[in-house]
Simulated scan of single mutants.
Amino acid sequence: MDRSGQFFPKPVRNAATGPFPTSEINSRRQLVSMTGNPNVIALKKLVASSIAKDPYDFDGFPWCSMSHRERGEALGVHEKTIRRLIKQAPFAFDTTRNVTLVRIAEPGEKPTPRIYAKKMAAFVRRYLAKHVPEQRTKLRAEKKALTDALDAPADLAMLNKALSLSLSPDELHDLPDDEKLEKAEARLVKVVKWASNLRERETSRDFGCLIGLAKVWPDGAQVEILEVIFDNWTAFMTGVKYQQHLDREANRKLKEVDPTAKLNQVRALFFDYPHIPTIRRYWRVALDAVTTHYQTTKKHPPAGFKALNPGLWKHLK
């Protein structure tokens, strides 16, 4: 008998893993937590009672909005126990306005777009934590080089060195000397703006865009799609610029037919780093870019992505 009063057959010793194989221990713990653990049973009753009396509607479900302290006091356990319990079946939890909401999830319940968005946001934070410090260092170095060059505009060598941080050798060679000063001034404005906008987590606008992407991208594939776009940003932006060209051509033709027609504005976009609102706006371009990525690398896309066009992936083994 274990602590919860559940009886289990004596485990058979395994020479490789010892008397209690990890998989067996995990399955035993899961069985206990989902069936006989008195704390789980008590918490289920508490959550159901709270929702029946005072439901908190959020993300399409009614939730229990009690605090962890209140839940712990009701069950006679520490708040840490509550935090541990809600992370396992049959509970679902979410956080909004500094309140941790809890409800009882249905077996096999499909994640909501918000849940997928939170997983995408977790990737974004990992990406930013890894890349932002390097970007900040580069921008600071470029800002200093541009500032020093502009303080000595007659020094063409300094100007060339500063511009070489953003221009390719061919671009710098083709740029007339009398235009380099103006180019450096414009670049400095951008560098200062980009440096001030660097952050290590998503904004509320970003998160809203992630929810939108979770709704239009195939279920289960959203995080991987976003990862591919972030890692292949230049290729994605090339696709965006081509789509904008098509949109402008469509506007021109529509204007020829109907001079009074209201046109969708196509604003030029220049982002050197991943920009979530742009991905949300051009989510179809993102799918095309990801398709090209998988075809080029010959990697298997997620099942949900394959389902968009199964015929494209028959050649993969």
Score class of each variant (00 low, 15 high):
Thr203Ile: 13
Pro38Val: 14
Asp174Gly: 03
Asp54Cys: 13
Glu73Trp: 03
Pro310Gln: 00
Ala105Glu: 07
Gln135Trp: 14
Thr81Cys: 11
Ala117Trp: 00
Trp194Asp: 13
Met1Ala: 12
Ala268Cys: 06
Lys241Val: 07
Ala92Met: 07
Gln88Ser: 14
Ser168Ala: 05
Leu156Lys: 10
Ala117Asp: 02
Met120Tyr: 02
Asp177Cys: 03
Arg13Ile: 12
Gly5Thr: 03
Ala268Tyr: 15
Lys110Arg: 06
His173Cys: 07
Glu24Met: 13
His245Leu: 12
Leu316His: 11
Asp59Ala: 14
Thr234Trp: 09
Met66Leu: 15
Pro107Val: 05
Val102Tyr: 01
Leu43Ala: 02
Trp194Val: 07
Leu31Asp: 15
Pro310Phe: 01
Asn197Tyr: 06
Ala307Tyr: 01
Asn14His: 11
Gly212Asp: 05
Ser168His: 04
Glu73Ser: 15
Ala141Cys: 04
Thr297His: 05
Asn39Ile: 15
Val102Glu: 04
Thr100Lys: 12
Gly36His: 12
Thr22Gln: 08
Asp151Gly: 13
Tyr127His: 06
Gly239Asp: 00
Asp94Gly: 04
Asp94Cys: 08
Val228Cys: 08
Val266Gly: 05
Pro176Ile: 03
Arg248Val: 11
Phe91Gln: 05
Gly311Cys: 07
Val266Pro: 04
Met1Cys: 15
Asp247Trp: 05
Met34Asp: 11
Val77Ser: 05
Arg83Asn: 08
Ala89Gly: 11
Pro310Ser: 03
Val191Met: 05
Phe123Val: 00
Lys241Arg: 15
Phe58Cys: 05
Ala235Pro: 03
Phe230Gly: 01
Pro19Trp: 14
His245Ile: 12
Thr147Lys: 13
Ser67Val: 06
Lys190Ser: 08
Ser65Phe: 14
Pro274Ala: 03
Lys80Trp: 14
Ile82Asn: 02
Gly72Ile: 08
Asn26Val: 12
Leu308Trp: 00
Tyr56Lys: 14
Ala145Trp: 06
Glu109Ile: 06
Thr137Glu: 08
Asp59Leu: 11
Asp177His: 10
Ala184Lys: 01
Lys262Asn: 10
Lys262Ile: 09
Glu179Ala: 11
Leu263Met: 11
Arg83Gly: 12
Asp206Trp: 04
Leu85Met: 06
Glu185Met: 15
Asp54Trp: 07
Phe230Glu: 01
Arg187Glu: 11
Pro218Glu: 00
Val223Lys: 06
Ser168Thr: 13
Thr203Gly: 04
Ala52Glu: 12
Gly239Ser: 09
Thr147His: 15
Pro9Lys: 13
Leu269Trp: 07
Phe7Trp: 15
Asp54Val: 12
Cys209Met: 09
Lys298Cys: 10
His131Leu: 10
Gly18Thr: 07
Arg199Ser: 06
Ala235Lys: 10
Lys317Pro: 08
Gly5Phe: 00
Ala48Cys: 14
Glu185His: 09
Ala307Asn: 04
Glu202His: 12
Asp155Tyr: 12
Ala122Cys: 03
Ile276Met: 01
Pro11Cys: 05
Pro111Asn: 02
Ile115Pro: 01
Ile104Trp: 10
Leu254His: 06
Ala154Thr: 13
Leu75Phe: 01
Met158Asp: 10
Asp148Asn: 09
